[in-house]
Amino acid sequence: MLHYLSAFASGLIFSIGLVISGMVNPAKVKNFLDLAGSWDPSLLFVMGGAIFITLPGYRLLSKSKAPWFANTFHWPTRQDIDAPLIKGAVFFGMGWALSGLCPGPALTVLPSAIPGVIGFVVMLIVGMIVAHHQQRLSA
């Protein structure tokens, strides 16, 4: 039960954090990216606040042997800079600026049933499926 409760709480705290930080508002994200216009640096403080917790927290966790409810820690191990990483980040940045949404805020705001957000999430799923297919073909 605690197994599920911890994952549920993590998702819930994440989205409440997004709401309080203001990142569920696409206009704020767009203004963060608009250095030459109505710049709103709030997003820097969101990332700062998050890293302020996770950087020391991850350091402490990396010394322990196993997580509470799983056998191993799935720390990412890749170090290489490859073309899909760069290409993916370029596409992501384009979509992020066009909409003011990234996956976390988009899914958090989905219950508000704003048409543009629903359209965004539908095509987000399509884009993910396309990329998965491409990865399978090249693997």
């Binding site: 596409f91 992501f92 992020w96 949404l101 990234c102 987000l124 884009g127 990865q135």
Partner: peptide, 13 residues
């Protein structure tokens, strides 16, 4: 935008 973000985040991990 959704298409770009979906494709980009899976491709770029």
């Amino acid at each position: 935008a959704g298409l770009f973000v979906g494709y980009g985040t899976v491709s770029g991990n």
